[in-house]
């Protein structure tokens, strides 16, 4: 896999390996940590382009993009993990995630610092996450995996991008951000 264009390579991998997806993971970087998400969640990967900002939303909702006619909300994963805002750079990517919630399919974009690869993670390399000492909320973690001499956090996307939780956060924001008067 060429490191010069990991996005194109990863997209290709995702397309090719739709059949045997059980142990296929897309790995990416948020901050200094490596994370992985099962490829069955991943619709595609986009290089960062313009995002339309949506006012009065919590900062973890960076805005929306037009994905071939569908309007997709973009969630800043660093904000979601409580680690501040992702600074957009040349390697910043949007991972389009498909989540089924309440029998409805939702498309959401996860903003990440960089996408690295699609890899196969052996069951034997899976480790249970420690009860504490994690940098992110426990319910976001599916498992930990040992990979190339370091640990990768496998994410539970239903929790990370919980539509209900995001909607509730947006609703809370409402009461704070409406300037009720300027007197």
């Amino acid at each position: 896999m060429s490191t010069s264009n990991p996005v194109a390579a990863a997209n290709q991998m995702i397309r090719q390996q739709k059949d045997d997806q059980q142990r296929q993971y897309l790995t990416f970087r948020v901050g200094n940590e490596m994370y992985a998400v099962a490829t069955r969640y991943v619709r595609e990967i986009l290089e960062f382009d313009q995002i339309t900002h949506v006012p009065m939303m919590p900062s973890l909702v960076r805005g929306v993009i037009n994905l071939r006619g569908a309007v997709v909300p973009i969630i800043d994963l660093a904000e979601r993990f409580g680690q501040g805002k992702i600074a957009v750079g040349v390697r910043t990517c949007i991972v389009i995630i498909e989540i089924i919630d309440d029998d409805e399919t939702h498309l959401l974009g996860a903003l990440v610092d960089a996408v690295s690869a699609v890899t196969e993670i052996e069951v034997t390399s899976l480790r249970q996450a420690p009860a504490f000492g994690n940098r992110i909320r426990g319910e976001f973690i599916e498992d930990m995996a040992r990979f190339d001499d370091h640990f990768i956090t496998l994410l539970r996307m239903e929790q990370v991008l919980s539509v209900n939780e995001l909607a509730a956060l947006a609703g809370q924001q409402r009461s704070v951000s409406i300037p009720s008067s300027h007197h």
């Binding site: 949506v54 995001l166 947006a170």
Partner: peptide, 13 residues
């Protein structure tokens, strides 16, 4: 295009 669940609560939109 509908607001969708995430933005359903946003006022003014």
């Amino acid at each position: 295009k509908p607001l969708g669940k995430v933005f359903a609560q946003v006022p003014a939109l």
